[in-house]
Each structure stands twice: as structure tokens, then as C-alpha cells.
């Protein structure tokens, strides 16, 4: 983080987007080139070595599969997207609430926080079948699994941020008789927001994992279910097609969170500087 950020972001001039786009392009083409080479080599290798199509599908077969099953893939993507987004939003509420509670009440800090940390040794993915057992084939077990996996980085980062407050500032607040709530709201929460965003970026990727695993464990739709189902049919091309859709979904959601963070930092540049 630089200490020299200007007070207001410079207005976009006509030359700025072009140059930043060029910058992007110069960074983008090397990995893109490698990707193209890999895909071509993949296609050729499968042909040359005559690998049977249920072990690995060629890129062209996967592409054909995507075109043929476009509607089904979209439907399943929509199902998974809903699970991830709702689960992520609930994770934010749970994660932030826990962080605030732990920092605000000494008792909770001592009683609950160690348990939350200890709970992280449980391989939460293994909880999926239990949640299916409890909540059936509805959306609920997916949301529960996502929250269980994704709340922790949010809580952890927010607690860190809430505790990063300037000691002298706390002293000053105390000197005018501020209540703990007032200090929390006026000083600690704003200080913690850049940390919260770091937690959100981790949480969104975990949320996608949670959704897919929950769908593996028991579901009638969603991209995870589609991968699972295709595997029972030895339909490798369909498995890869669904895999690509999950990956793109994860990427899009990750950048969406990054974009919200960017908007936030642009709107409140001085808040973003708070931890300098």
C-alpha cells in the first residue's frame, strides 16, 4: 500500500484507458500464448497416442459438448451461483458478527475464539454428508457447508483489523469517556475494513469449493452434481465442460469481490490508508 495516494483519484482521460489496456495486454499475452500451446498439444497428444475418450476428452470434444449442452450447463451454473452467493452473504454476516462479538466482549474472546480456531482442524468438507442427512436435498445443506467453510477467514481478518487500532487513539477516546461501543463503531470498525476485504477474497473462493462439494455429496442439480453425474456415465467431455464452467464462475466471483473492494478504496481512499 503506498502512502502517496492522491486525495481524489485522477479523472479518466482519453489516453488513460488505452495505456492501461496496453499494460494489461502486455501482461496477458504470455500466459494466453502458453494456454493456447497447451490446448493444441493436448488435442494432438490425445489423437497421436489414441487415448480412449472416457479417460480424457480432447478440447474439441469438450467444446462440442459445451455447445450441445449449453442450456443444461447454464441452468446448473445458475443453481451453483445462487448457492455460492447466498452462502457467501450469510458467511459475511456470520463472520463479521462473530468478529465484533469476540472483540467487544472479553468473555466471548476467551470462551469462543479458541473454539472457533480449534474447529479449523476439522476437515469441513467431510461434514457435507452429515448436512445432507440433516437438511435433505434442498439448498440448505449447501448454504450451511459454505458458511462453515467460508466464515473463518472473514472472522480472522476482521478480528486482526479490529485489534490494529492505534493505542494512543484509544487513550484519547477514553479520555473523553467514550463507551466501548462508540470506540468500536467510530475507530475500530473503519480501521478493520481493509482487512475485512482481504478476508472476503479468501472466503469467496472457499464458498465455491463448499458449493461444489455439497453438490457432490447429494444434489439433483448444480455444476457439482453435473460433474458427479457425468462421471457415473463415463462422460468425460461433459465432466470437463462442467469443470470449466465452475472455474469461470469462481474467477468471475473472485474478480467481482475485487471490484467491490476497488470501488470501496476509490470512494474511501483514506480508509484504505488506515493501516499504513
Amino acid at each position: 500500500m503506498t502512502a502517496t495516494a492522491p486525495a481524489r483519484p485522477a479523472p479518466l482521460t482519453s489516453s488513460a484507458p488505452t495505456s492501461s489496456w496496453r499494460l494489461r495486454w502486455s501482461k496477458l499475452w504470455p500466459p494466453l500464448l502458453v494456454a493456447v500451446i497447451v490446448v493444441v498439444a493436448w488435442e494432438l497428444a490425445v489423437d497421436v497416442f489414441d487415448v480412449s475418450s472416457y479417460i480424457i476428452a480432447t478440447p474439441s470434444e469438450i467444446a462440442a459438448e459445451i455447445v450441445a449442452n449449453w442450456q443444461l450447463l447454464l441452468t446448473n451454473t445458475w443453481v451453483t451461483t445462487q448457492e455460492v452467493v447466498y452462502g457467501f452473504l450469510i458467511s459475511i454476516v456470520v463472520g463479521v458478527a462473530l468478529a465484533l462479538a469476540v472483540v467487544r466482549f472479553r468473555f466471548l474472546d476467551r470462551a469462543i475464539y479458541p473454539l472457533i480456531v480449534l474447529f479449523q482442524v476439522v476437515p469441513k468438507v467431510a461434514l457435507a454428508p452429515i448436512f445432507i442427512l440433516w437438511f435433505g436435498y434442498s439448498m440448505t445443506p449447501k448454504l450451511v457447508l459454505i458458511v462453515v467453510i467460508a466464515f473463518f477467514p472473514i472472522t480472522l481478518n476482521m478480528v486482526l483489523g479490529l485489534r490494529r487500532t492505534d493505542e494512543d487513539l484509544l487513550l484519547l477516546m477514553n479520555s473523553v469517556g467514550s463507551s466501548k461501543n462508540e470506540i468500536l463503531a467510530r475507530i475500530q470498525v473503519p480501521t478493520s475494513l481493509p482487512y475485512l476485504f482481504a478476508g472476503l477474497r479468501i472466503a469467496i473462493t472457499l464458498a465455491v469449493i463448499g458449493a461444489v462439494v455439497a453438490e457432490f455429496a447429494g444434489s439433483q442439480n448444480g455444476l457439482g452434481h453435473q460433474i458427479q453425474f457425468a462421471s457415473t456415465q463415463l462422460d468425460t467431455a461433459q465432466m470437463f465442460a462442467a469443470l470449466i464452467f465452475v472455474s469461470v464462475l469462481g474467477l468471475v466471483l473472485y474478480y467481482l469481490v475485487g471490484f467491490v473492494e476497488y470501488l470501496f478504496k476509490r470512494r474511501f481512499p483514506h480508509l484504505a490508508l488506515a493501516d499504513v
Binding site: 494512543d168 484519547l172 479520555s175 474511501f268
Partner: peptide, 13 residues
């Protein structure tokens, strides 16, 4: 009580 500490301790935002 009015307090001026050794460091300014201003709110950055």
C-alpha cells in the same frame, strides 16, 4: 481533561 499526546494520533480517514 484535554490531552495532547507525544504522537499526534489522528484518525487517518
Amino acid at each position: 481533561i484535554g490531552l495532547v499526546l507525544q504522537r499526534p494520533a489522528l484518525v487517518p480517514w
